[in-house]
Simulated scan of single mutants.
Amino acid sequence: MGKLNIKQIEHLSIPGTYEDGDGLRLVVKASGKKSWVLRFQVGGKRREMGLGGVPDVKLRDARNEAFAQRQLVQKGVDPLAEREATRLALAKAMLTDQSRAITFKCIALEYIAAQRNGWKSAKHAQQWENTLTTYAYPVLATLNTEDITTEHILKVLTPIWQIKPATASRLRNRMEIVLDAAKVRGLREGENPARWRGHLYKLVPPRARLKTVVHHPALPWGEMPAFMQELWLHGDLSYKAIVLSVLTV
């Protein structure tokens, strides 16, 4: 049984420490504030742990909490370290919940706004907005940055990688920067799925290896009758097929 009782606790006014037993003590401050403290020893070190103040924490509750913490000590667990680990886990969970609401588009817009004054011209900022709006946002806008994978990046880049290589390359770089910004803010972990070296380099051909498509100039319309007649008179069925294709376009 403890040494303190409810009436004693109510009337204690002299500053000091009042033992209840088994390490539980009531500390009375000069201001009149009263609080519960548990003293214990772990790994040869004496520790003190606050259990709350009076009247919020009643005598029975303080004893129950002290008993629970002593059980941890008997198992070799430091109650203070355990409390801190729990606090950090809860804080991380709250941060994770909050970060889920911050999408790729949010990070991109914030990055552009932060960098706009440092760029050489307003045109550069507009180019950022245009490429992301046209190509990236249809796939990534509403996704949390933590959820974006290589497959998402390829879904953005593949349709334009060979037909618009310069635009695709700039777009890839901008997506990489946005995801890096998210990582710096603690909103994602791991490697950047939009990085080039050692990653996308293995999945899509470099710009230098892409063949530039050269379109033949259109035949002037005035020369079309003679061209069609020449094809028809050639005799080969493949030439006649070309004539048919032209006439049915």
Results as ranks from 00 to 15, higher is better:
154 L>S: 05
111 Y>M: 14
110 E>S: 15
125 A>P: 00
123 K>T: 12
125 A>D: 01
112 I>W: 14
171 L>A: 08
165 P>L: 06
141 A>V: 06
150 T>C: 04
144 N>L: 07
135 Y>I: 01
144 N>V: 05
122 A>F: 07
168 A>N: 07
173 N>R: 13
132 L>Q: 11
116 R>M: 03
121 S>R: 14
140 L>E: 02
112 I>E: 09
132 L>M: 14
174 R>C: 00
146 E>K: 15
124 H>N: 05
123 K>I: 13
142 T>V: 10
148 I>L: 11
152 H>A: 03
117 N>W: 07
166 A>L: 04
122 A>K: 14
169 S>F: 03
108 A>H: 05
165 P>K: 01
150 T>I: 07
133 T>Y: 04
130 N>T: 14
116 R>S: 07
138 P>G: 04
143 L>C: 13
121 S>P: 10
116 R>W: 05
120 K>H: 06
111 Y>L: 15
127 Q>P: 08
113 A>T: 11
170 R>H: 12
148 I>K: 11
123 K>H: 14
107 I>L: 07
142 T>K: 15
122 A>P: 01
168 A>G: 06
119 W>D: 00
109 L>D: 10
163 I>Q: 08
140 L>F: 09
109 L>G: 04
116 R>T: 05
174 R>D: 00
159 P>C: 06
148 I>Y: 09
109 L>H: 12
143 L>P: 06
109 L>T: 10
164 K>N: 01
161 W>R: 08
163 I>W: 02
116 R>G: 00
134 T>Y: 12
159 P>S: 05
154 L>E: 03
160 I>P: 02
173 N>H: 10
108 A>Q: 08
142 T>D: 11
146 E>S: 15
137 Y>H: 10
141 A>S: 13
147 D>M: 15
173 N>D: 02
152 H>G: 03
140 L>M: 08
133 T>A: 10
137 Y>G: 05
167 T>S: 10
172 R>W: 08
114 A>N: 11
149 T>C: 10
120 K>Y: 06
160 I>K: 01
120 K>D: 00
141 A>H: 12
